[in-house]
């Protein structure tokens, strides 16, 4: 059953994990992390989970690596040169306790996991039976935007509030600059670290392709793998690339960032309110107009996710100035 590809992938994941943890240079760790992300996405593909692979590649690897590259360029050496402080009296204590705890945890978890009688999820049949009422054809999109829309709504709320926290910790506390409607965050004015000119033109070349890919992922989501989260991650990556190659995005940030951030959640809640107005439970959508509701919620959620993830990137700039 276990093919050679799986063994190689498994060993590769272990090796690259070491590479992204042990070295003391942030640049090497970041590169290790990037490769790890690619390998993990491949692992998900081998497990036939295209949706998880897409999410992993877009958010786990793409965006997180972007943040880490920025950090590695700004301050290549981690504080304390990346090494854990050893306890002064008994230097071997921490590694030994850590290893023992890790080994016993793995053993207990593995033993229980292997011994337990696993059951298939009980919602499979119900999901297939009720999918036609949701207006979408892809099961995962159905789960995200119909069956468990409440979870998705709270999660988009989390992303919106994370971005709100970033804005709150920016200069001017996320308010407009005095006497104007421009968002007064300091990051717009802060210069980006210098990048090679090749990146600059590559980013301009890539941006339209990324936007196209993002939109395709968004609209494919109703029938095939993909959806708001993956699409939002790709679109945010396009924005980050453009900003990294010093394209002027200050107008977009100043006027559009906050409205885009909240529009997805607001429209989602308003769409959820249609149910109670018609005497149905919260978040229920009649089959006749379910597709329209799901599609508009998904498009605007994508806008919110794009803005939210891009705001997280803005958080990297220290509001007190570069130290």
């Amino acid at each position: 059953m276990i093919s050679l590809i799986d063994v190689v992938l498994g060993l590769g994941v272990l090796a690259v994990t070491g590479l992204s943890l042990i070295p003391r240079s942030r640049l090497v760790m970041t590169l290790g992390f990037l490769v790890l992300g690619v390998l993990i996405a491949l692992v998900w593909l081998r497990l036939d989970s295209l949706d998880v692979a897409l999410a992993e590649a877009a958010i786990g690897t793409g965006l997180l690596s972007g943040l880490m590259v920025w950090l590695a360029v700004r301050s290549p050496l981690p504080p304390g040169a990346g090494a854990m402080e050893t306890s002064p009296r008994i230097p071997w204590l921490r590694p030994v306790v850590g290893t023992a705890a890790g080994v016993s945890l793995t053993l207990v978890l593995a033993a229980v996991w292997l011994r337990a009688e696993h059951r298939l999820p009980e919602w499979r049949d119900a999901a297939e039976a009720q999918l036609p009422d949701t207006g979408v054809e892809h099961q995962i999109t159905g789960v995200l935007l119909a069956f468990r829309a409440y979870d998705t709504l709270l999660e988009s709320g989390i992303l919106m509030l994370t971005a709100a926290a970033v804005l709150a910790l920016s200069r001017d506390g996320g308010l407009s600059a005095e006497g104007s409607h421009r968002l007064g965050v300091h990051q717009i004015a802060a210069p980006m670290p210098p990048v090679p000119s090749a990146l600059s033109w590559a980013a301009r070349l890539l941006a339209p392709a990324l936007v196209l890919l993002g939109l395709w992922l968004l609209f494919a989501g109703s029938t095939d793998s993909g959806g708001a989260f993956q699409s939002g991650a790709v679109l945010a990556a396009a924005l980050i690339l453009l900003r990294a190659s010093q394209v002027d995005l200050s107008g977009f940030t100043a006027y559009w960032l906050r409205p885009l951030l909240v529009v997805g959640v607001v429209v989602f809640i308003c769409a959820g309110l249609i149910g109670p107005v018609l005497g149905l439970p919260w978040l229920s959508w009649e089959p006749e107009w379910a597709f329209a509701a799901v599609l508009s919620v998904e498009v605007l959620l994508t806008a919110g996710i794009t803005a939210g993830l891009y705001t997280l990137f803005l958080a990297l700039e220290n509001p007190e100035g570069v130290r």
């Binding site: 709320g157 919106m160 906050r258 909240v262 959640v265 809640i269 959820g272 109670p276």
Partner: peptide
């Protein structure tokens, strides 16, 4: 029953509105 859903979703709506307001 309406209140059960509204108790969670209305404050979230309020939070979203507060992000864009002065």
């Amino acid at each position: 029953q309406f209140a059960l859903g509204a108790l969670t979703l209305l404050p979230l709506l309020g939070a979203a509105a507060a992000v864009v307001l002065p």
